[in-house]
Design a protein around this nucleic acid. Structure first.
Lengths: 143, 143
DNA sequence: CCAATTTATATCGCTGACTTATGTACGCAG
DNA sequence: CTGCGTACATAAGTCAGCGATATAAATTGG
């Protein structure tokens, strides 16, 4: 492991905690929010396609979908081509919940961003593609 | 809110999920790990100074400290100057647990970092001071 | 200096969100 | 239609958080 990676890891570690506290309490668990974002981003999915990337077990996803359905944020549809399958999709209320959460977070973050110097701000913007790339790499690795 | 902040927020949102999955399972909850890091970083604290910054209730912190104590990762000491207070400090085993967790995470991250181009890597390194600053700002804001 | 209040921590009962093990319904090959 | 694999649901247990409340020490007002 290159030495400089350790510095990056240390910085990320602390920054991760900062991000975590930026949306402290809410009716959605981390996994619930993440699942909703996935459904919003890449459309309806079968339940069996959801649990692995979210890093939880299949029963946990069943329960999560049940909760989301009870709260009106997602819905189950049966797949006509496969009677065993359940297709999960996000509802309008779900989209609103996601965008509300996103907005709250973005506003809190925006306030912090204003404390940066223009140079620091530019550095953050310049690093965004790299962060995006890291997320892509992590996703690939998982599959 | 400046328009570009939204892009930053979106990038951070996804990156946050990525970091979250970088240390998937472990015996320590997110809060437990975060609390241990705090104790390691800034020394012993009274229980009442711990729960607010960690974003949990006081009873939850009492329980968390109890668990950490049971696992030998932290210990309670009574404050001689205030009979009501309990001073929590990290043990040697606690330090090891923190550093182990940090190492695992750093290695996983390091693997991802190698997938970046040199330019992207430099962009990340260049952004570190800004991320650090953001964390500082968030800490100030909380107090 | 004693009663009332505030502060610091602990205990209780509850819920949410996971786990593993197991059950059920459907699809498909023989 | 038998039997097996797949997709999902259910059951039972655990863990980590919550609010309400209890206990005990410190502080404060008369």
């Amino acid at each position: 492991m290159p030495a400089e990676d350790a510095a990056v890891a240390a910085g990320f570690e602390r920054f991760y905690e900062t991000l975590r506290r930026l949306t402290p309490r809410g009716p959605l668990s981390l996994t619930a929010a993440s699942t909703l974002r996935r459904l919003e981003r890449s459309g309806p999915h079968r339940l069996c396609e959801l649990y692995a990337p979210e890093g939880i077990s299949q029963p946990a996803m069943t329960q999560l979908v049940t909760r989301l359905e009870k709260e009106g944020l997602a819905e189950r549809t049966s797949d006509p081509s496969d009677g065993r399958a359940v297709v999960v999709s996000i509802t309008e209320a779900g989209r609103e919940a996601v965008s509300h959460r996103r907005r709250v977070r973005a506003e809190a973050l925006s306030e912090l961003l204003q404390g940066l110097t223009p140079e620091q701000y530019e550095a953050v913007v310049a690093a965004l593609p790299a962060l995006e790339r890291l997320s892509d790499l992590a996703t690939e690795q998982a599959s």
